[in-house]
Simulated assay, not measured.
Amino acid sequence: MKGKILFIAGLGVGYVLGTKAGRERYEQIAAVAGRFWGSPLVQKQVDTVEGFVRDKAPDVAEFAGETVKKVVGAATGRGSTAAKRSAAAKKAAATRRANAARSQSDD
């Protein structure tokens, strides 16, 4: 509840300050932000981060899936079945990564 109150207060302060600054100042800030975002250095970093996320997304999804299976297996008493599925999921993920690496090297 405290976080919501602080968020709403922040919105109110931002609104008041924004209305006092006026549209002209907003346009100046937006122009500077646009130039910053469009600069080659920033876009290079954006591309780097996008590539990193694209490469790591399958690993994160696999990790999350395995963790959920372990928790469910422990909660339901089916841990050994979950472990077998986890091993199969790891093998499938490794195959997907190898295929993705091969397709990237072919391009």
Results as ranks from 00 to 15, higher is better:
residue 40 P to Q: 04
residue 62 E to D: 14
residue 72 V to L: 07
residue 48 T to P: 00
residue 74 A to R: 09
residue 63 F to E: 02
residue 52 F to K: 07
residue 72 V to N: 00
residue 68 V to D: 08
residue 66 E to V: 10
residue 66 E to Q: 02
residue 78 R to V: 13
residue 81 T to Q: 12
residue 88 A to M: 08
residue 75 A to F: 07
residue 53 V to P: 00
residue 45 Q to Y: 05
residue 64 A to D: 05
residue 82 A to Y: 05
residue 44 K to R: 10
residue 55 D to I: 14
residue 85 R to C: 09
residue 66 E to L: 02
residue 60 V to I: 12
residue 86 S to E: 02
residue 67 T to K: 12
residue 72 V to A: 08
residue 46 V to W: 08
residue 81 T to L: 11
residue 72 V to D: 09
residue 67 T to P: 03
residue 84 K to F: 13
residue 41 L to K: 12
residue 90 K to Y: 11
residue 85 R to L: 15
residue 55 D to P: 07
residue 42 V to Q: 12
residue 46 V to M: 06
residue 92 A to N: 10
residue 46 V to G: 10
residue 43 Q to V: 12
residue 45 Q to P: 05
residue 41 L to M: 13
residue 90 K to F: 14
residue 55 D to C: 01
residue 91 K to G: 08
residue 80 S to C: 02
residue 56 K to I: 15
residue 80 S to A: 13
residue 71 V to S: 05
residue 85 R to V: 15
residue 87 A to R: 11
residue 49 V to G: 06
residue 52 F to Y: 00
residue 44 K to S: 12
residue 79 G to Y: 00
residue 40 P to D: 06
residue 82 A to D: 01
residue 77 G to K: 09
residue 84 K to Q: 11
residue 65 G to P: 04
residue 49 V to H: 11
residue 83 A to E: 11
residue 61 A to T: 14
residue 63 F to R: 06
residue 41 L to W: 00
residue 69 K to Y: 08
residue 70 K to N: 08
residue 51 G to S: 12
residue 45 Q to V: 14
residue 52 F to L: 06
residue 49 V to P: 05
residue 57 A to S: 05
residue 58 P to K: 02
residue 73 G to L: 08
residue 50 E to L: 15
residue 78 R to L: 13
residue 44 K to L: 11
residue 49 V to D: 12
residue 69 K to M: 12
residue 86 S to N: 07
residue 61 A to S: 05
residue 51 G to P: 07
residue 92 A to K: 07
residue 75 A to M: 11
residue 65 G to W: 02
residue 54 R to Y: 03
residue 74 A to I: 04
residue 72 V to S: 03
residue 58 P to D: 01
residue 58 P to Y: 10
residue 78 R to W: 02
residue 58 P to E: 10
residue 89 A to G: 12
residue 54 R to N: 13
